[in-house]
Amino acid sequence: MCPILRSILSGAVLPCPSAKTPPTIGLGISSPRLLPGNLSHIAIVSSNRSTVVPTRGLVIHNIGGGAREEDTLFAFRQTGHFRFGPI
């Protein structure tokens, strides 16, 4: 994870256990990930669900084409899971 994301996520967030199954990665979980070329990226799980796997949440992210909500929860290598908590 890049230093800026690490700094942001170390402040007002609560770490969540890493998970590979949809029920444990729920609404509001931020998912730092690595894109091809080791580019840091972050996505947030929304309340909307995949049409392919209804138990899997869609993610909101922006990979250079504007903010989008897509079914890409497991499309890239995840480097952690965090939930924003009280400050």
Rank of each mutant, 00 (worst) to 15 (best):
A75Y: 06
T51C: 07
R33V: 13
G11E: 09
A43N: 01
G64S: 08
L73T: 12
S30Y: 08
R56W: 04
I44S: 07
P54Q: 03
R77T: 13
G28Y: 02
G85C: 13
P15Q: 06
L27H: 13
G85E: 10
N62C: 10
V59A: 04
S7K: 12
G26H: 15
I25H: 00
H61C: 11
G57T: 04
V52Y: 12
Q78E: 15
I60E: 04
R49N: 09
G28L: 01
G57A: 05
H61T: 09
S50Y: 00
S18F: 14
F84G: 05
R6C: 06
R56I: 01
T55G: 04
C2F: 05
L27K: 07
F84D: 00
R6V: 03
R77G: 03
P36R: 13
R33W: 02
M1S: 10
T24C: 11
P3D: 03
S40I: 12
K20Y: 07
G64C: 04
I87W: 07
N38M: 11
P54L: 02
V52K: 14
H41A: 01
P23M: 03
V13G: 08
A75H: 06
F82V: 13
V52I: 14
S18V: 12
Q78V: 14
R49T: 09
R77P: 10
S7W: 05
T24S: 15
A75R: 12
P54K: 02
E70I: 11
P36L: 09
G80Y: 03
G37Q: 06
R56F: 02
V53R: 03
G64P: 06
I29G: 00
D71R: 02
S30R: 06
I4D: 13
P22E: 06
V13A: 15
L73M: 15
S30T: 12
S46H: 00
F84K: 05
F74T: 11
P22F: 07
H81M: 03
R6W: 03
P36N: 13
G26P: 02
G28H: 01
Q78W: 03
T21L: 11
I25Y: 00
G28E: 03
I4C: 09
I60P: 00
R33K: 12
P3F: 00
L14D: 13
